[in-house]
């Protein structure tokens, strides 16, 4: 009994200590960002690894999610004779929810896990220590550019996901099921609000990008420098990111669309 309480206490202390470290880490990473103004090439390189290499995954997934939305939406709407509204259904689901959320989940799996593994391995092979001793701050040189790249890539990827998804919905709706294309696009344009829907979706993806990149980089930087430690950290990145994305999505949705 006492032992259980003790281990619970230890777990609590460890968790809060880690949380504290994560915030100090975030602070250090953010202070390194202004200096990147002179090191643009570092960011561009990371934009390629973090963003461009996730592109294909986002493209394909977006297309299929949109196509499924088109099929399912049509089947429901057609019973009410409202299949003309398919465009609205597809665009609102994607722009408000699925775009940011699914893109962020994919991003965590594709780019987040890679970031954690990379940083964790750099730590375990003493590359980060080596940089420190060469008077190069590894947080500024290695972490900050990756953070900025993740933060920039995520909203763009989510936007691409939504755009491709809408196109996928159109392909199925118009091409396969014969929904009138004029109605599809015009209803969508009328019912999708620039501020209420698009901007809120963008805000979500910005928040997700921030959090996922933060989690991924911190897990790598804080990993126990062994192969097992890095492996666990990579798993934690994906799991914690998923929790964070879904939890924050609920909170943000409640704040934005709640009233």
């Amino acid at each position: 009994m006492i032992e259980t309480i003790r281990s619970l206490g230890r777990w609590g202390l460890n968790t809060f200590e880690r949380l504290g470290r994560a915030h100090i880490f975030l602070f250090q990473v953010l202070t390194g960002i202004p200096g990147l103004a002179f090191r643009g090439s570092l960011v561009v390189q990371q934009l390629f690894y973090v963003g461009v290499l996730s592109f294909a995954l986002i493209l394909v997934s977006g297309l299929f999610v949109g196509m499924v939305l088109g099929l399912q939406g049509y089947n429901t709407l057609v019973d009410f004779g409202a299949e003309e509204s398919l465009g609205v259904l597809v665009s609102l689901s994607l722009v408000r929810e699925l775009g940011p959320v699914v893109a962020a989940l994919l991003f965590a799996g594709r780019a987040g896990s890679a970031l954690t593994a990379e940083i964790g391995l750099m730590k375990s092979t003493e590359q980060l220590s080596g940089m420190e001793m060469m008077a190069v701050d590894p947080i500024r040189r290695v972490i900050s550019p990756r953070f900025l790249a993740g933060f920039i890539s995520m909203p763009l990827l989510a936007a691409i996901f939504s755009a491709v998804g809408i196109f996928g919905g159109f392909l199925v709706g118009h091409g396969l099921l014969g929904v009138d294309d004029g109605a599809f696009w015009s209803q969508m344009q009328v019912k999708t609000d620039w501020y209420g829907d698009v901007l809120n979706g963008v805000i979500k993806s910005v928040v997700f990008g921030f959090v996922v990149t933060w989690i991924a980089l911190f897990e790598g930087y804080d990993a126990i420098p062994t192969s097992e430690g890095v492996g666990r950290a990579t798993t934690r990145t994906v799991v914690h990111s998923a929790f964070a994305i879904l939890g924050l999505d609920f909170v943000l949705t409640a704040l934005m669309f709640g009233d």
């Binding site: 750099m122 092979t125 003493e126 590359q127 220590s129 080596g130 940089m131 001793m133």
Partner: peptide, 10 residues
């Protein structure tokens, strides 16, 4: 500093 492991950037 010369690290025991070399610590080269891979």
């Amino acid at each position: 500093m010369l690290f025991q492991s070399g610590a080269l950037l891979t």
